[in-house]
C-alpha cells in the first residue's frame, strides 16, 4: 500500500470497527433485555451495525490487497490493531447507560454517513447511502428513549443523567480530526468532522434539553481508540467474539 491507501485502510477500519464493537456490545443484551420488544429492537440495531461493519471491513480488505476479507479482519486482529472509537467499547451498564451510549453514537453516526454519502470514493458512497437509512431509524429510536427516560420518573432521570455524565469524556475523540481524517478530507474521501461535530452538538443539545438533562461542563476528553490505544474492555470483547474462529479456523456456518 502507498501512503494514501494506508490512510484509506485506516479510515475504513475506524468505520468498520466502531460499528462492529458496538454491535457486539448490543448483542450481549439478547436474552437479558428488560422487555421482549426492546430485545428485538436492540438485536435489530446490532445486526444493522454488524452488517455495516461487514461492508466497511470488506472494503478495507480490498484496499489492503493482502487477501484479508471482512471475517479475517474481524476475527484475527488483536486489540492494538482495532481502530474503533472508545465510546463503542464502553460496557453495557444498565439500560439507561446502553441507551445513552447508543444515542451519543447515533447522533455522530448519522451526520457522518450523510457526509460520506457524498464522498469522492464511489464504494464509500454506496455503503454510506445504504447504511444511512438504517441509522436514521437508530437515531430516532435512541433520541426518543433518552427523552422518555430523562423526562420520565425520578429514577429514570437520575440514571440517564449519570450515564451522560460518565460517557461524556468519550465523545470528543470521534468528533476531533487527526492527520488521517485531515488527509482524506483533502482528497474528498472522508467526512468533514467539524461539520459532523456541528450536527452532533445541535442534536445532543436539542434532545437533552427536551429530556431535561444537563450537559456536563467542557472537560478533558479521552482519546486513542482511532489510533489503536484502547481501554481494558476491548480485550474481553475480542476474546468472546473471536474465540470460535480462532479455536476452529475452518469452522463454517
Amino acid at each position: 500500500m502507498n501512503k494514501l491507501e494506508q490512510q484509506q485502510f485506516e479510515y475504513l477500519l475506524r468505520l468498520g470497527d466502531s460499528d462492529l464493537i458496538l454491535g457486539q456490545r448490543l448483542s450481549a443484551w439478547l436474552g437479558h433485555a428488560p422487555v421482549l420488544e426492546e430485545e428485538m429492537a436492540t438485536g435489530n440495531v446490532a445486526l444493522d451495525l454488524v452488517g455495516q461493519a461487514r461492508s466497511w471491513l470488506g472494503l478495507a480488505g480490498e484496499i489492503e490487497g493482502a487477501g484479508r476479507d471482512a471475517d479475517r479482519l474481524a476475527y484475527f486482529r488483536d486489540a492494538f490493531d482495532y481502530r474503533n472509537v472508545l465510546l463503542a467499547e464502553r460496557p453495557n451498564g444498565d439500560y439507561a447507560y446502553t441507551i445513552m451510549r447508543q444515542f451519543l453514537y447515533d447522533a455522530y453516526h448519522y451526520p457522518l454517513l450523510e457526509r460520506l454519502s457524498a464522498s469522492a470514493d464511489e464504494r464509500i458512497r454506496e455503503v454510506a447511502a445504504k447504511s444511512l437509512k438504517e441509522v436514521q431509524y437508530h437515531v430516532r429510536r435512541s433520541s426518543e428513549w433518552v427523552i422518555r427516560m430523562g423526562d420520565g420518573t425520578r429514577e429514570s432521570h437520575d440514571r440517564i443523567q449519570a450515564a451522560l455524565d460518565d460517557l461524556w469524556m468519550y465523545t470528543g475523540e470521534m468528533l476531533t480530526p487527526d492527520e488521517v481524517d485531515q488527509a482524506l478530507l483533502e482528497t474528498g474521501v472522508a467526512a468533514d468532522l467539524e461539520r459532523v461535530a456541528g450536527a452532533w452538538h445541535e442534536r445532543v443539545r436539542e434532545v437533552t434539553a427536551e429530556a431535561t438533562l444537563v450537559i456536563p461542563d467542557e472537560s478533558w476528553m479521552q482519546q486513542g481508540g482511532k489510533q489503536g490505544r484502547h481501554t481494558e474492555h476491548l480485550g474481553y470483547i475480542l476474546a468472546e467474539m473471536q474465540f470460535l474462529p480462532r479455536a476452529y479456523p475452518d469452522a463454517r456456518w
Partner: peptide
C-alpha cells in the same frame, strides 16, 4: 407493549417487520 404511540410504532416495526 409500549408506553406511547411513538414507542408502539417502533416496537411494531422491530417485532413484526424484520
Amino acid at each position: 407493549h409500549a408506553t406511547d404511540a411513538e414507542m408502539a410504532m417502533n416496537n411494531a416495526r422491530d417485532v413484526y417487520t424484520r
